[in-house]
Design a binder for these strands. Structure first.
Lengths: 322, 322
DNA sequence: CTGAAAGCGCTTACAG
DNA sequence: CTGAAAGCGCTTACAG
């Protein structure tokens, strides 16, 4: 691979001049510029980004940290983040923590070492201090990490309320909520929204933990529906959770939606693949990812951002399960 | 952040000595080593990996290039690749090409610039020359790129044969195959396996293209099942494709498995979420990813590899759709 | 407008 | 066993 020296020699100028035309910075005469451009083309020269990074302490990369890449919510998010990043000339490094604190820490270390310009976090296992100590632009996506960190979330509480209202509206008189992990903000908000509406309508309800995992949801649903067959409406904390509940219902011969109505949360493609297709509260997943990416890049480039907290509306999508 | 100079000063030795203890290379006296270790701890020093990379022309990163991260087959693969890589001290950079040749080229450029140590490819849009020109260790995963490139695939042909035999065994007398993208080896192999068995049994069949996309599969199935309602058995080129076929069947009121039997390929979790749960040919996805990762790292570290071509067996999983 | 030089933070012959 | 120096491939004051 050709280096900047080779180009300088070929163009009969100094490396400083080559660097100037590369970065379009400082004065360069027309002739010098042309000679350099010609040499670059001739040698098929491309500047070494590692050397650049070393000097600039900036790599043009941004990190995206997700808890579980096999949960279909995150690949969608990742794609949006990447689309926007690429537009602005940034490369995305995807880091999957498998929900392990140790892995997250290692990634932070590695990302910082590689001089990433910023990080988008969809995890929250570490403490606020850890994030502050990074001294790097951060955006919290689908999580809330602190007031001083720009945040992009759906209006989970409102979405949960709508889901619950919808179930009641459809005639459900005994509800269940399969909540996500305790302490994870979106999951907590959905739980609270559910609870508010159920209590306001004086509808009895059960709440069980399903951690956004299909297997856990299925076994929890198996148990709950066996013990409490009167339940006729389920608000699942996510679409994946809903799929687990539906599997259990199917095994137990609960007919959906006649005997049991189910509504999910997320709006991932999986929902419409199920039979019957899943009613859900749709998040603007792509928008969330794209917005986060833009917010992070604005921070990196020291541009002002309009707000510290973005709370995107959700949308009730009625399909076959309600 | 402390640098090697700071450590050297603190330990009252030269940077060369610090470097030697860091890399456990060359002779260092006990006293010097201890002083350095102490200084490192005191200053919470961590060597700058960008500087290291610049000198070594090796970053400790490996690239994983996938065509579509939202296709659930790839996150599973990614996770396996990452698990193994992390064990050996490598970091994985996930690159999503969105099936765009331009994006793939850009990523190659970027990966090479960043001195990644090797690349695992699950795409094949570029020519063999492009891969050779990389001059980097490569593993072809779920793709075949050439005889001189180590390859890990499932035995797609054999799996397809089993799927087809299974449909016939279950009494199907008019088959359809929803094949994946033409020119993509695993898709072609599955098609060939299907064709062989169908012809050998003199069973009439149709073949339509579905590109591994759910929407495409659904619309193709809508059309095919409407025009050729005699079809009673479908071998879908992937589980996602099968989900599309099942959606269409459901819309058209084809009852599964009574009227129409469906079998997929892949064995991703989605299959067991469908109703009825999808019969499929299961690939050892995790194994494929892990093996590829190991093969790549062996190449990087100039260790011998046992074979250039790994052809993993598949497994027939009978569930509700057949 | 341009080039020589120093520096980003490392590693590794080389001489002692 | 150890240090001074050169070098990885860039960028940017600084002097001219």
């Amino acid at each position: 691979m050709a280096t900047i020296r080779d180009v300088a020699k070929q163009a009969k100028v100094s490396v400083a001049t080559v660097s100037r035309v590369l970065n379009k910075k400082g004065y360069v005469s027309k002739e010098a510029e042309e000679a350099v451009l010609k040499a670059i083309k001739m040698l098929d020269y491309r500047p070494n980004s590692v050397a650049r990074t070393l000097y600039n302490k900036s790599s043009g990369m941004i990190g995206l940290v997700v808890p579980d890449i096999t949960n279909p919510f995150f690949p969608e998010l990742a794609r949006a983040v990447e689309d926007v990043a690429l537009t602005y000339g940034y490369t995305v490094v995807l880091c999957n923590t498998d929900e392990m604190v140790e892995k997250e820490k290692k990634y932070f270390e590695a990302l910082k070492q590689k001089y990433v310009d910023g990080i988008i976090l969809t995890t929250s296992s570490l403490s606020t201090e850890d994030y502050d100590r990074l001294e790097l632009p951060i955006v919290a996506l689908d999580r809330e990490l602190g007031d001083n960190i720009p945040t992009v979330v759906s209006n989970n509480r409102q979405g949960a309320r709508e889901a619950t209202e919808h179930l009641i509206h459809r005639g459900c008189r005994y509800l269940a909520h399969f909540r996500g992990p305790v302490g994870v903000a979106p999951a907590d908000e959905r739980y609270l929204g559910f609870k508010e509406v159920a209590e306001q309508h004086e509808i009895p309800y059960k709440v069980v933990n399903a951690d956004f995992h299909i297997d856990k949801a299925e076994s929890a649903a198996n148990e709950l529906l066996t013990n409490t067959p009167l339940i006729d409406g389920v608000f699942a904390g996510s679409d994946v959770t809903a799929a687990g509940v539906m599997k259990a219902a199917h095994t137990l011969n609960f007919s959906i939606p006649d005997q049991l109505k189910v509504i999910g949360f997320d709006g991932i493609p999986l929902g419409s693949m199920l039979v019957p297709p899943l009613s859900t509260i749709e998040q603007s997943i792509y928008k969330m990812g794209a917005l986060s990416s833009r917010l992070l890049i604005k921070q990196i480039e020291k541009k002002p951002i309009d707000a510290m907290y973005y709370d995107l509306p959700t949308k009730l999508v009625i399909r076959g399960t309600t």
